[in-house]
C-alpha cells in the first residue's frame, strides 16, 4: 500500500503537493486568522474557480490556448480578485466584511455563467470543487512548487513587517512601516496559494485548510512563531493522514483532509478540557 505512493507518479505528485500545501496554507492562514480575514480565502477561492472555468472555456474555443493550464487563469483571476477586495474594504470602511460576500457571489455568478456557456467540461470540474487525489498533474505540481518557494521566501523576507501590520495596523503606519506595500504582497501571496492549492483541497474546502490548523494551534501556542509552527504541524498531519485514507477508501481527498483537521481540532479542545479537569 505505502509502496504505491512511490510507484505511481500521480501519487508522488499528490504527496509532494499536499506537503507543500500543508506549509503555505497555514503559514498565510495564521496571518489571515489574526487579522480577522479568514473568510477572504473563501471569497477568493470562488473567484479562482471562475478563472479556471474561463481558462477551460478559452482552451476549448481558442486553439492556441489549448495547452495553457486553466489553473493559470485561476491565478490571474485570484490576484485581480484580491486587489478588488482591498479596494472594496477601503470603500466600505465601516462594513469591511461586506467585501468578501461581494467577491464571493460575483465569482460564483461568473463561474456558473461560464460553465453554462461551455455546457460541457463537468468531469474535470468536480476535482476543482472538492479536490481529487488522482487529478494532480506534473504541471500542477510544478506550479505549486513555484508558488510555495515564492510564498515561503516572501514571508521570511517581510516577516517582521507582516507581524507588525497584522498586530496593529495603525501603529505600524505611524511608526513608518511600508503598510501598503506589505498588504499588497500579502494579498497576492494569498491569491496565489489558493489557486495553487485548489486541485488537492478543492475550492469549497480551501478556507478550511487555511483556518482549521490555525484554530487548533491558537489553543496551545505560546507565541506568534509557535502559532505558525503548530499550525503547519497540524496541517501536515491532516494532509498526510487525509491523503492516505482518501486513497485507501477512495474518498475525495479535500474532504478527507479537512475531516482529519476537524478531528485534530476536537482532539486539541478535548485534551485542554481534560487537562483543566485533571488540575
Amino acid at each position: 500500500m505505502i509502496a504505491d505512493w512511490f510507484h505511481y507518479d500521480f501519487l508522488r505528485y499528490t504527496l509532494l503537493s499536499g506537503v507543500l500545501i500543508g506549509v503555505i496554507c497555514p503559514l498565510l492562514g495564521t496571518f489571515l486568522v489574526v487579522r480577522r480575514l479568514s473568510m477572504m480565502a473563501d471569497g477568493l477561492s470562488h473567484v479562482t474557480l471562475s478563472g479556471v472555468a474561463a481558462g477551460m472555456l478559452l482552451s476549448k474555443n481558442v486553439a492556441f490556448l489549448g495547452a495553457v493550464n486553466p489553473l493559470f487563469f485561476g491565478m490571474i483571476f485570484s490576484v485581480i480578485g484580491s486587489l478588488f477586495i482591498e479596494r472594496l474594504r477601503k470603500l466600505y470602511k465601516s462594513q469591511q466584511d461586506l467585501a468578501i460576500p461581494i467577491i464571493l457571489s460575483g465569482g460564483l455568478g461568473l463561474f456558473t455563467v461560464l460553465v453554462s456557456m461551455a455546457d460541457g467540461f463537468t468531469t474535470d470540474l468536480y476535482s476543482y470543487l472538492f479536490g481529487n487525489i488522482v487529478t494532480v498533474t506534473k504541471e500542477d505540481m510544478f506550479a505549486l512548487i513555484g508558488v510555495a518557494v515564492f510564498v515561503i521566501g516572501t514571508v521570511l523576507a517581510i516577516y517582521k513587517e507582516l507581524f507588525a501590520v497584522s498586530f496593529d495596523e495603525e501603529f505600524a503606519r505611524v511608526s513608518g512601516v511600508a503598510r501598503k506595500f506589505i498588504n499588497f504582497w500579502f494579498i497576492v501571496l494569498v491569491a496565489l496559494t489558493i489557486a495553487a492549492s485548489m486541485r488537492i483541497v478543492g475550492v469549497l474546502l480551501i478556507s478550511a485548510m487555511i483556518t482549521l490548523p490555525v484554530a487548533s494551534s491558537l489553543q496551545i501556542a505560546k507565541s506568534f512563531r509557535q502559532t505558525i509552527f503548530y499550525a503547519i504541524l497540524f496541517a501536515e498531519i491532516s494532509v498526510l493522514v487525509g491523503l492516505y485514507f482518501a486513497y485507501l477508501l477512495d474518498w475525495a481527498s479535500g474532504g478527507t483532509i479537512v475531516l482529519v483537521a476537524v478531528l485534530l481540532l476536537l482532539g486539541v479542545l478535548a485534551s485542554k478540557k481534560l487537562k483543566r479537569i485533571w488540575n
Binding site: K160, A164, F167, D168, F171, S175, G176, F181
Partner: peptide, 9 residues
Amino acid sequence: SGLVGKLGL
C-alpha cells in the same frame, strides 16, 4: 514590533 519601522525592510 516597535522597531520594525525604524529598521526598515
